[in-house]
Amino acid sequence: MNIYVLLKKTFDTEEKIVVSDGRIEDDGAEFIINPYDEYAVEEAIKQRDEHGGEVTVITIGDEDSEKQLRTALAMGADKAVLINTEDDLEEGDQFTTTKILEAYFKDKEVDLILAGNVAIDEASGQVGPRLAERLGINYVTTITSLSIDGNTVNIDKDVEGDVEKIETSLPLLVTCQQGLNEPRYPSLPGIMKAKKKPLEELEIDDLDLDEDELEPKTKTLNVFLPPEKEAGRVLEGEIEDQVKELVSLLRNEAKVL
């Protein structure tokens, strides 16, 4: 099976966000594989181990993105592709990203593409479905179970807490939801091997793309932090009195009851 994983690097979830000049400051920030993309990497490896084939991990980013790709290779992916847009693109959005991926996949034979259901930074969740539409393949988002038998695919899909049992077929794009699996940590031998695995670096010229075609359809005007929340009141006294006071505050002051 030809299995592909779409991967994005994101801020570590521990990071505090600092804004300067209407943009997010990323100097010195720790980056990780987007947590939902980790589920995708893990699932790709499991499916390959069961059905054979090859796992290729793709990211669009800059030279620092190699770090997350190497981590995915250390987990067990076979090949990595870095589409480096650092010198060519100043702005991009989900339209841009999809266009680049569409160009990459143009001459590829695809059985399965896995992605995170959302990236924890921009959180649009658009790229998976957008790409499937461009490639003319079916997609299922927010999956929590995947089993492949020949060409038939059985999926559990999380729909706001309910589970849909779905039957579909390859080729297919899926986006991964928490609960799908437990991503493995790279082992030491895995890390050593990853250094020698192929990592192809491409630029948009290599994909026969023009910068004009990649003009984003949306524009971010500015970024700001929410107002700092003031610490509120911790109530005092007997527990029973505190509960009575709380209910009264919720009703009369906060007006939410």
Partner: peptide, 10 residues
């Protein structure tokens, strides 16, 4: 964005 750690105007 960043799960509500920040907001953007778009």
């Amino acid at each position: 964005i960043y799960s509500g750690k920040a907001f953007e105007k778009k």
